[in-house]
Amino acid sequence: MNKIDWEEVARRIDARTLPIIYMHDVHRYYIVGDIVVKALDGVSVKIYKGDFTAIMGPSGSGKSTLMNLVGCLDTPTSGKILIDGEDTRGLNETELAYIRNRKIGFVFQQFNLLGKINALENVMTPLLYCGGISLRERRERAEQALEKVGLADRMKHLPNELSGGQKQRVAIARALVTRPSIILADEPTGALDTKTGEQIMELFYSLNSEGNTIVVVTHNDEIGNACPNQIRIRDGKREA
């Protein structure tokens, strides 16, 4: 009989029981003039490793605020957020930047590539901020990521030499390259035509089937409903 590796067992249990995104009773208020805007008003969310979740809601519902909190671009007014076990409450800018770099891979509606450097260099950029990774390794990992999204032949192109779909693939490669805990996509198909949008969603499905945790933020029901899990937000609260 094989010896039982209890540490491995514990890790597997953890992975199943500890959500990769854990939000409990999260509030995020903004003060605009004399008015307090309750962008999020007591939201709790659990997303597990390997999930493919859509955060849905009309514009102004608070889903962008939710995304910013999950992406560690923002911190809550009150409530608890754990990203891959890390409590983001009370973290300073530098510590938040560290979590964004190691645990989050962003994909934006407008791609947000850096215009003056080529696709490969764009994908290498997040690795630069990890520190201590050699140029050679950065290049290799970026090349692998670009191959994975099917852009091995476009590495030396500048962003403005690429189509919308290709740009979004570069952005996805850039999100993948740090091997993050979560890929966080904000309206990833919003700037693309339907067919290209479907291809991008296909890419997300295939990345998910390889074990990546994916969160797509969208107001598009068609895209959202096609995802295995949905979280609906309206007026700063979760809809049942």
């Binding site: 800018e93 964004r100 997040p126 740090t178």
Partner: peptide, 16 residues
């Protein structure tokens, strides 16, 4: 400004 935002999202700390 936009570039700074992107770099920050990718994990560049204020120091960087």
């Amino acid at each position: 400004t936009k570039e700074i935002g992107i770099r920050k999202a990718l994990g560049a700390s204020p120091r960087v």
